[in-house]
Simulated assay, not measured.
Amino acid sequence: MKARAEFLAARKGRRLNGPLFFIEALDRRDDGAPRYGLTITKKVGNAVVRNRIRRRLREAVRLGAGADMQPGHDYVVVARRELIGVPFETLAAELSQRIQRGRTKRDPQRPDGRTQQGRSGT
């Protein structure tokens, strides 16, 4: 993802919080390839630090987390400062775990394709 509008649209989706980053995931309602974008603000550090974080996140997606992403979804990873000091294996595992936790199943009975979420019982 590169366009600002795509990043802003992803904010309307689910938010998956974690200690190193959070992920905003949006179901685009199509069967296209999953897309992802990275956001690293100036609060995290200078350009050298931000670029290093960006490279580490891209590699983590390439090596494993990309396979966990659902078709037809957009993912925006917003990095936190703590990410820079974490071993790469921990980063990759956390990213995969966070994406897997956010997986949803589309309900063919609902016109918008979302899952039925509500309470059942008395």
Rank of each mutant, 00 (worst) to 15 (best):
P108K: 10
H73W: 15
D112G: 07
G66F: 10
K43R: 15
R11D: 07
I40A: 06
I99D: 06
Q97A: 15
F22Q: 13
G102M: 06
T122N: 07
T115K: 04
R28L: 01
R98K: 13
G32C: 02
R110W: 11
I99Y: 00
G118H: 04
V77A: 01
D30P: 11
A33Y: 10
R80K: 09
D31G: 14
R35K: 14
V49F: 05
I99V: 14
A79I: 14
N51E: 12
R114L: 09
R103E: 08
R15C: 08
N51G: 13
L16T: 05
I99E: 03
D112K: 06
Q100E: 11
N46R: 15
E89Y: 11
T115V: 03
A67G: 09
E24P: 00
P111M: 02
D68S: 13
G45D: 14
D112V: 08
R103S: 11
R119T: 12
N17F: 05
A60K: 01
V76M: 02
R58T: 06
P19D: 15
D112N: 13
L26I: 06
I53Q: 00
I53H: 04
R28Y: 03
T41D: 09
R28D: 01
A5Q: 08
D27T: 01
R98D: 06
A9D: 05
A9H: 04
V78E: 00
G72C: 10
L38G: 02
N46D: 15
A5Y: 06
D112L: 09
R56P: 01
D30R: 14
S120I: 14
F7Q: 05
L8R: 01
R50T: 04
Q70I: 07
R4K: 12
A5H: 08
N17E: 06
G118Y: 03
I99M: 05
A65F: 04
P108N: 12
R4M: 06
R106V: 03
V48I: 14
G121E: 09
D27C: 01
V44A: 02
F88P: 01
T104V: 15
R119P: 11
G121F: 11
T122E: 08
T104R: 15
R14W: 02
K12G: 06
D27S: 02
V78L: 02
L38F: 02
A79S: 14
I53P: 04
E94A: 15
E89H: 14
V48M: 09
S120D: 11
R81V: 04
L95P: 02
A25P: 07
E6D: 14
T41M: 08
K42E: 05
R101F: 00
D31Q: 15
R106W: 05
I23A: 08
L63V: 12
R35Y: 10
R81E: 10
R35V: 12
L8G: 00
R14C: 01
V78H: 03
R29A: 07
A5G: 04
R56S: 03
